[in-house]
Simulated scan of single mutants.
Amino acid sequence: MKNLKTIAIALVLAVTTMTATAQDKKINAAKSKISWVGEKLTGKHEGTISIKDGVLNFKAGKLSGGNVTVDMNSITVTDLKAGEGKEKLEGHLKAADFFGTDKFATSKIVFKSVKAKTAGVYTVTADLTIKNITKPVTFDLTVAKNSATSTFKVDRTKYGIEYASKSFFESIGDKAIYDEFELTVNLQF
């Protein structure tokens, strides 16, 4: 019976220690921001997408995992004004030949591995799901006291977004849109 009490106390201490060193930090969606830039031969467009929810996991003060869900219906264009094609481009980005937001309302990134690179900087390999297609991405994430930031590129063609891609339509000429778009992510927690 004495052994059973000792084991029980050891288990309680182990769980308490693990709980004290592991911490989940919920992402503040209202204060977080994702900016995007898409380029084409004749220029570029930029805008924002809102975060729906997410969490970053920490162990002993170091990033260990996380996930972020993005509200694809929130995609906006910020380099055009109303009446200058803003509404048309936003509608097209939400259409089936781009992100198909009526069918795929969210995108998600789930961290699979996190490796410390330098103080406060981590190399993250994650599964990125867009239009229900999941592919791996790798990026550096800089973590400060209450924020995490990253800039990385995504190849849209890997997610079935082939519209005006020179990779698929060689004769498209100067109407081609580059396959990669850039995301700048600023998470607040």
Rank of each mutant, 00 (worst) to 15 (best):
K2E: 15
N3S: 09
K5S: 13
A8Y: 13
A8E: 09
V12H: 07
L13W: 08
T17E: 12
T17G: 15
T17N: 13
M18T: 13
M18Q: 12
Q23S: 15
D24S: 15
K25R: 13
K25A: 06
I27P: 00
A30W: 10
A30D: 14
S32Y: 06
I34W: 00
V37N: 10
V37C: 05
G38E: 02
E39D: 09
K40C: 01
G43H: 02
G43D: 02
H45R: 03
H45M: 03
G47D: 05
K52G: 00
D53L: 02
D53W: 01
G54P: 00
V55G: 03
F58K: 04
G61K: 00
K62A: 10
S64H: 11
G65Q: 07
G65A: 02
G66M: 02
G66A: 05
V68P: 00
T69Q: 09
D71F: 07
N73S: 13
V77Q: 08
D79C: 10
D79K: 06
L80G: 02
A82N: 14
G83I: 04
G83E: 14
E84S: 15
K86C: 02
K86L: 06
E87Q: 14
K88I: 12
E90A: 09
E90L: 08
E90V: 11
G91V: 06
H92A: 10
L93E: 03
F99D: 00
F99K: 00
F99M: 05
K103Y: 14
T106E: 10
K108Y: 10
I109E: 01
I109N: 01
F111C: 09
T118P: 14
T118F: 11
V121M: 05
T123K: 09
T123E: 14
V124Q: 02
L128P: 00
T129G: 01
T129Y: 04
N132Q: 13
I133R: 12
P136T: 05
T138Q: 11
F139P: 06
F139C: 02
T142H: 04
A144T: 15
A144H: 11
N146I: 08
S150K: 05
R156K: 12
R156A: 01
T157K: 03
Y163R: 07
Y163G: 04
A164Q: 14
S167W: 15
S167D: 14
E170Y: 12
S171H: 11
I172N: 04
D174L: 05
A176D: 05
I177Y: 03
Y178C: 09
Y178L: 15
F181L: 06
F181N: 08
T184Y: 03
V185I: 12
V185F: 04
N186R: 09
Q188Y: 09
Q188A: 10
